[in-house]
Write a protein that binds this DNA or RNA. Structure first.
Length: 568
DNA sequence: GGAAATTGTCATACT
DNA sequence: CAAGTATGACAATTT
C-alpha cells in the first residue's frame, strides 16, 4: 500500500520517509524490525517481579531496605528503587552496578524462591548454561560480587536497575561505565539495558542455581553487550561455532534442533554489530531476548496476562536489529500483508527493497520461533541475514519452504501490528514497555529518547491501543462474568418461582378445605336454628352473620332489588 | 470453505 | 485537561 514511497537508506531520509508513510497510513505500518526485544523481555521480567513483589512485598521490603540502606530504597507504593540521598558518593559511583547484592541476599532469596516456583522448569538448565558463559563475559570493571547473592538478587536487581536508571544522575554515572565502546546507537538505547547486562553476566557466571528462564535469556544479551564493549575480545571468542557452543550448549542440549541456528544467527548479528551497526546494544537485547524466548517462552507468557498474548514474548525480533541497521528503509513501504508475502517467499520478492525487507523480516520473524524451527530453516534464515558473511548454509538441506513459511507465519502472527509498526519506525522501546510503564516512567522514558513526530505518535497510539486492548479484555471478562452471574440469578429465581408456585398451590388447597369446613359448620349451625314455631329457617330467607365483636345474628336476607337499591 | 468464536481496534462516553 | 477506563460496534483472526 505504502509502497509508492521510495526507499532511502540514509537514516535521515528514512525517518522522513517514515513520517510520510506513517501519515499516509499509520495503521498499516508494515515494518517488522524491532531491536528492543531483549528490552521487552526485561519489561516482562519487571512485570513479573512486580507481581511477585506485590505478593511478597511486605516481607521483601523490610529486608531490602536493610540491604539497600546504603544506596537504594524501595518505594513500596511505586515499587521503584530510589537512591538514598545519604548514600556515600563513592558507593554511588562504583557500586551502581550491584548496589543491593550485598545486603539483599536474603530478601532476594525469597524473591528467587518465588521466581523458581513460578518458573520451575528450565531454570536449572539455563542457569547452568549461563554459568558456563559467564567467565567469558566477565568484564574487569565489574566489581567482585558474591555469586550466591547475585544469582538470587539479580532479577530484582533488574527491576531496581530499571528504576535507578530512570534517575538521570545515575544514568550519567552508569552510562560511561557500561558503554565503554558504545555503538552510535547507544543514545537510542534504553540506558537500563546497559545496567542489566553486567548483572546478568555476573549472575550467569556465578549461577548454578535456579534462575528464571527469562533472566537467563538475558545472559546472552549481557554477553553481547560485553562483547560490544570489547570487540577484540569478542572477536577472539567469536568464531560462530565457538560462540554457539559457548552460549548455547545448554540450550542445544535442551532443544537440540532449534538452538543452534539462533546461535549462528546471533553470531552473524554480532559480526554486524562489531562492524558498527547503529543499533548494537538494542540488537544485543534482541538476541538475549530471543534466547529467553527459547528457554522461557511459556513462562513469560503466563506471567504477562496483559501483554498481547505472545506478542511481546513470541515476537522476538532479536536478530532483526542488525538487518535493520542495514535495511531499515525497506520495511517501511509494506503493509502487514505485504510483509507476510515477503516472508513466504524470501527469495522471490519482486522489488529491490522487498529484498532488503525480506532479510530483516525473515530474521525477525524467525527468531521467536527458533525453537520450533528446523535446522535447515534456521540456516536459511542465517543465509538471509548474512548473505555476504555466510554465503551458503552449512547443511545444504533444501529448505522446507512450507514448514518454514508456516513457522514464519506463526511467528509473524505473534507479532502484533503495533509491534510491527514499532519495528518499522524503529521505536527503541518494547511494546510491552510502552503499554505497561506507569505514566511518569513512560513520560520520562520518552523524554530520554529523541523521537520524531511519527515515532511519538506511534508510541502514543501503541500505548492507547494496548491499554484499550486490556480494557476490552477486562470488559469482556466482566461481561462474561455478568452473564454467568445473571444465569445463576435466573436459575435461582426460577427455583424460587417454582417453590412459590408450589406453596401457592398448597395454600389454595388448604384454603379450599377451610372453606368447605366453614360451609359445613355454617350449614350445621344454621340447620339447628328454629323459629318460634319450631320450624327451621329457610337459608334463602335468612343468613347467619357475625359482627365485629364476635356475636352472631340471624339476619333476614335482603332482597337483591333492595340491596341493589341500597347499594345505589 | 464457511460459520462460530475470539481478539483487536476504534469511537465515544465517562471517570 | 490529559490519561485512563468502559463498552458497543465492527474488523480481523482463529478455531
Amino acid at each position: 500500500m505504502e509502497v509508492e514511497a521510495p526507499k532511502a537508506h540514509p537514516s535521515q531520509q528514512d525517518m522522513e520517509l517514515i513520517d510520510i508513510l506513517w501519515r499516509q497510513d499509520i495503521d498499516l505500518g508494515a515494518g517488522r524490525e524491532v531491536f528492543d526485544f531483549s528490552y521487552r523481555q526485561k519489561e516482562s521480567e519487571l512485570q513479573k517481579q512486580r507481581q511477585l513483589a506485590e505478593e511478597k512485598r511486605l516481607e521483601l521490603l523490610r529486608e531490602r531496605e536493610k540491604a539497600l540502606l546504603s544506596q537504594l530504597q524501595l518505594d513500596e507504593e511505586t515499587g521503584e528503587f530510589v537512591p538514598r540521598p545519604a548514600a556515600p558518593p563513592s558507593e554511588a559511583t562504583q557500586n551502581v552496578n550491584f548496589p543491593e547484592e550485598n545486603g539483599d541476599a536474603m530478601s532476594f532469596d525469597e524473591c528467587m524462591e518465588l521466581l523458581a516456583q513460578t518458573f520451575p522448569l528450565e531454570a536449572t538448565q539455563t542457569t547452568a548454561s549461563t554459568a558456563s558463559d559467564a567467565p567469558i563475559i566477565m568484564t574487569p570493571e565489574q566489581p567482585p560480587i558474591q555469586p550466591a547473592s547475585l544469582q538470587k538478587t539479580w532479577p530484582d536487581m533488574d527491576q531496581a536497575w530499571m528504576e535507578l536508571l530512570s534517575i538521570p544522575e545515575l544514568q550519567e554515572m552508569l552510562e560511561p561505565r557500561d558503554y565503554l565502546n558504545t555503538n552510535v546507537s547507544t543514545e537510542t538505547q534504553d540506558p537500563n539495558y546497559s545496567l542489566f547486562v553486567p548483572n546478568m553476566t555476573d549472575v550467569a557466571a556465578t549461577t548454578g542455581e535456579v534462575c528464571p528462564p527469562e533472566f537467563i535469556s538475558g545472559t546472552p544479551a549481557s554477553l553481547f553487550s560485553q562483547m560490544s564493549l570489547k570487540p577484540s575480545d569478542v572477536s577472539n571468542n567469536l568464531n560462530a561455532d565457538g560462540f554457539c557452543e559457548i552460549f548455547y550448549t545448554d540450550l542445544l542440549n535442551t532443544n537440540a534442533a532449534a538452538q543452534p541456528c539462533e546461535g549462528s544467527n546471533e553470531v552473524g548479528q554480532l559480526a554486524e554489530m562489531q562492524q558498527g551497526s547503529p543499533l548494537g546494544p538494542l540488537e544485543m537485547r534482541d538476541l538475549s531476548s530471543a534466547d529467553g524466548l527459547k528457554n522461557s517462552n511459556s513462562d513469560v507468557m503466563t506471567e504477562f496476562p496483559d501483554s498481547d498474548s505472545g506478542l511481546s514474548v513470541g515476537a522476538s525480533p532479536s536478530s532483526s536489529s542488525p538487518e535493520k541497521s542495514l535495511h531499515e528503509d525497506g520495511s517501511f513501504g509494506f503493509s502487514d500483508s505485504d510483509m507476510d508475502e515477503m516472508d513466504n517467499g524470501p527469495g522471490s520478492t519482486d522489488s529491490g527493497y522487498s529484498d532488503l525487507f525480506l532479510t530483516s523480516f525473515s530474521t525477525d520473524v524467525e527468531q521467536p520461533t527458533t525453537s520450533a524451527k528446523s535446522a535447515a530453516a534456521q540456516q536459511a534464515d542465517m543465509k538471509v541475514k548474512h548473505p555476504k558473511t555466510e554465503p551458503v548454509e552449512a547443511s545444504g538441506h533444501p529448505k522446507p519452504p512450507f514448514t518454514k513459511d508456516k513457522q514464519k507465519k506463526r511467528a509473524e502472527a505473534r507479532l502484533s501490528r503495533d509491534e510491527q509498526r514499532a519495528r518499522t519506525l524503529q521505536i527503541p522501546f518494547s511494546v510491552d514497555t510502552i503499554i505497561n510503564l506507569p505514566v511518569d516512567d513512560f513520560t520520562e522514558m520518552m523524554s530520554k529518547h529523541q523521537l520524531n513526530e511519527a515515532q511519538l505518535a506511534l508510541v502514543r497510539d501503541i500505548r492507547r491501543r494496548g491499554k484499550n486492548k486490556v480494557a476490552a479484555q477486562n470488559c469482556r471478562k466482566r461481561k462474561m462474568e455478568n452473564i454467568v452471574g445473571l444465569e445463576y440469578d435466573l436459575d435461582s429465581l426460577k427455583e424460587e418461582k417454582e417453590r412459590l408456585l408450589r406453596e401457592k398451590a398448597e395454600q389454595g388447597t388448604s384454603l379450599r378445605q377451610m372453606k368447605q369446613q366453614l360451609s359445613g359448620l355454617y350449614l350445621e349451625v344454621f340447620g339447628m336454628l328454629r323459629d318460634e314455631e319450631g320450624r327451621p329457617y329457610s337459608p334463602a330467607e335468612y343468613s347467619l352473620q357475625q359482627t365485629t365483636d364476635g356475636s352472631v345474628f340471624l339476619v333476614p336476607r335482603v332482597k337483591k332489588t333492595l340491596v341493589k337499591s341500597d347499594g345505589n
